[in-house]
């Protein structure tokens, strides 16, 4: 099956399967841990890499999120799917790490007396971080701001509906729509530049 005809990425498990997995985890089933890692780890890593723009930081974040999920698994009541619950933690953690890294980079810049940042600082930041990017689409996404990367990743990579993005990212539906619209426009420009 070619990539173009592949079905859209959806939840890796059905709601029943995800609840069964949660139940096993809540009962301390060690095998369920292996299943959790096999089901979610790589996918979460890719999402986190796209949002954070840093593979190594994404690795740490995914590890932290999985530990966080296991630690609080008894508090999971099954109101949402396990996927939504884990991704909510992931997106929040990515946001936190992204902002922290942004602040750290600004500190480094000011220490090096290179703090002549123009108004559109996120773009400068991305240029600063990503010098060795080869992939066109990912390169274009990496040039967006953290908030825009977040919605673009959840919409285009995770292929989530807007309502679900709003829940996971804890922002209103209107904000999701406006962010997505702006991110798309920016992405279009970047991609047209990329493609010449």
């Amino acid at each position: 099956m070619s990539l173009a005809t592949k079905p859209l990425i959806k939840d890796v498990t059905s709601l029943e399967e995800s609840l069964a997995l949660v139940h096993r985890l809540q009962n301390g089933d060690q095998e369920a841990v292996n299943d959790l890692v096999a089901l979610y780890a790589d996918r979460m890593l890719r999402t986190a890499t796209l949002i954070l723009n840093d593979y190594h930081l994404a690795e740490d974040v995914v590890q932290e999120v999985l530990i966080d999920a296991i630690t609080h698994i008894r508090q999971f009541r099954g109101d949402a799917s396990l996927y939504s619950w884990i991704y909510t933690i992931l997106v929040r953690r990515c946001r936190k790490q992204g902002k922290r890294r942004y602040r750290n980079l600004l500190d480094v810049k000011s220490n090096e007396k290179l703090n002549q940042l123009p108004d559109d600082t996120p773009d400068v930041l991305e240029q600063y971080i990503l010098k060795a990017e080869h992939h066109s689409v990912r390169k274009a996404i990496s040039k967006l701001s953290l908030a825009h990367r977040e919605v673009i990743t959840l919409f285009y990579y995770e292929e989530l509906p807007l309502e679900r993005i709003s829940i996971i990212a804890n922002i209103t539906l209107g904000t999701v729509k406006s962010r997505l619209h702006r991110a798309r426009l920016k992405l279009k420009k970047l991609l047209s530049k990329e493609c010449g």
Partner: peptide
């Protein structure tokens, strides 16, 4: 765009 993004992201895995 989606297909390209997905194929680019397959490089990333634990």
């Amino acid at each position: 765009f989606k297909s390209k993004l997905r194929s680019e992201m397959t490089d990333f895995s634990f």
